[in-house]
């Protein structure tokens, strides 16, 4: 079995950098564009994300996720951080459009990797409110306050739906937590 790109990076194999850019450049660029306000901002974010990828490569555990999902996680962390510091959110054309959007597309052709396909299926198993909150927050990038304002749900309810929903999707994806591996209650 070929060694993963991230393991090669962790071993300081610089030839893996080009392979990483070739394989995951499009993914990171797409996530950055989705969660940034303009192209310049997205380009800065991509540079920061890849530095984070080099730094965190050794933490990649293929028994826990695919390389694609791990890199998407690193990208999300940085993008959320940038949004928080910039105190801005994605400016949707219309919040009402997003809320009204039938965002429960499980169209498998649209999904980037197998875990995204499974995530789409998992969302279908959630209660409609949980699914709506997760899509508005994770896919559309809205804060809990914005979701509360847009949907009329109290802030605490938004958080509760998000927490329960994400735990259920984790179960569906089989991404076991360290806690459950140690026999704790999840």
């Amino acid at each position: 079995m070929a060694e993963s790109i991230l393991h090669r990076i962790a071993d300081k194999d610089q030839t893996a950098v080009q392979d990483c850019l070739k394989k995951y450049g499009g993914l990171v660029w797409s996530l950055a564009r989705r969660m940034s306000t303009n192209t310049e901002d997205a380009e800065d974010a991509v540079q920061e994300i890849f530095i984070d990828v080099w730094k965190n490569a050794e933490r990649f555990d293929e028994s826990q996720s695919s390389e694609t999902t791990f890199i998407a996680m690193i990208a999300r962390r940085r993008l959320i951080d940038r949004l928080r510091y910039a105190k801005r959110r994605i400016a949707p054309d219309s919040l009402e459009d997003i809320v009204a959007e039938p965002a429960n597309r499980a169209d498998e052709e649209m999904q980037t990797n197998i875990e995204a396909k499974d995530a789409a299926r998992a969302l279908q198993t959630l209660r409609p409110e949980q699914r709506q909150v997760l899509q508005l927050s994770i896919v559309q990038g809205l804060s809990h306050q914005e979701i509360s304002e847009a949907t009329g749900m109290p802030l605490g309810t938004v958080k509760t739906h998000a927490r329960r929903g994400i735990l259920q999707v984790r179960e569906f994806l089989g991404m076991s937590s360290l806690e459950s591996m140690k026999g704790g209650a999840a």
Partner: peptide, 28 residues
Amino acid sequence: FADDSLELTAAAIGMMNLDTSEPMPAHL
């Protein structure tokens, strides 16, 4: 108890409906 599994789950959801057809610009 430090754990990445929920962030990985969110990352998988975050890739839904993502259009990755546009490659990263060459200068970037």
